[in-house]
Design a protein around this nucleic acid. Structure first.
Length: 257
DNA sequence: ATGCCGCCCGTAGGGCGA
């Protein structure tokens, strides 16, 4: 008996719905956090998931961003966004599932280090730090999972030299990711499956997946209280091999009992 | 490299992602 938490940036739930359903059927996760659903709450295929026995929380918007959490058990105390931060972009969704506070995050991409979007990413992450600090004070059992758009270390990058200083790997972004861990979180993949050159995202261009030119930017972070129950963390590369895939692939954390 | 690929909106081609 185990409990599994998964995260997947699907890059449009409209396009990827059949793949998500196939993946749910195969893996039967207890919780699946979705990013970049790219749709409003109104057109979210709610009944499709409730018919499969999932409870659902959604924070959607037209065209861009959008996050959702599917759970086999009810979602309680749902919070959309970062409290006190008036951000029109729907990137954060939290809920309590059984005894665990779960936060689904879609961190801004940042475009390039000399762009306004990079400034937004850093400012946004500062707000996330405050939110996570408050959350951890209230909930010792917390999992924060999603697309962080940060590769924490060079071993999470296929070509560290080519990527040096670029967005997704820059020193400022990595320092923010470290600050997040320093609040009391563990990078579960790094703790449980510390092999190098394991990636969660591959560019659509240049045959990047076939050549394994990827980055590890999707993460499942957990407090030490959760970590005590953690047995396994894996990246499921299979959906990235499917026809018309998302450019990201799922990450799965398995807890005992 | 203002490139590559894919999705969105909308029905052409620019915005955006990473």
């Amino acid at each position: 008996m185990s409990t599994t938490f998964a995260t997947w940036n699907v890059n449009s739930l409209r396009v990827r719905l059949e793949q998500v359903l196939a993946w749910l059927q195969e893996h039967q996760p207890d919780v699946l956090a979705l990013q970049e659903i790219k749709m409003t709450d109104e057109i979210f295929p709610l009944e499709t998931f409730t018919n499969l026995g999932y409870h659902v929380a959604v924070a959607g918007q037209p065209t861009y961003n959008g996050v959702a959490i599917l759970s086999r058990t009810p979602l309680q105390d749902v919070v959309v966004g970062i409290p006190g931060y008036d951000d029109p972009q729907k990137r954060v969704l939290a809920a309590t599932i059984a005894d665990i506070r779960v936060i689904c995050v879609y961190v801004p991409n940042g475009a390039s280090v000399d762009s306004d979007k990079y400034g937004y990413k850093l400012q946004w992450f500062e707000k996330l730090l405050g939110y996570v600090k408050n959350t951890l004070a209230a909930y010792p059992h917390t999992i924060i999972l999603g697309d962080y758009n940060i590769a924490p270390e060079d071993r999470d990058v296929h070509d560290p030299l080519a990527w040096q200083g670029q967005v997704l790997v820059s020193a400022k972004e990595r320092a923010y990711f470290e600050a997040l861990l320093a609040l009391g979180l563990n990078d579960t993949f790094r703790v449980l499956a510390p092999e190098d050159n394991s990636y969660t995202w591959w560019d659509y261009r240049m045959n990047a997946f076939k050549r394994n030119l990827g980055l590890r930017i999707d993460h499942i972070l957990a407090t030490s209280a959760v970590m005590a129950r953690a047995e396994r963390c894996v990246i499921d590369k299979l959906p990235r091999t499917w026809e018309r895939p998302s450019d990201h692939t799922p990450v799965i954390l398995q807890l005992s009992a």
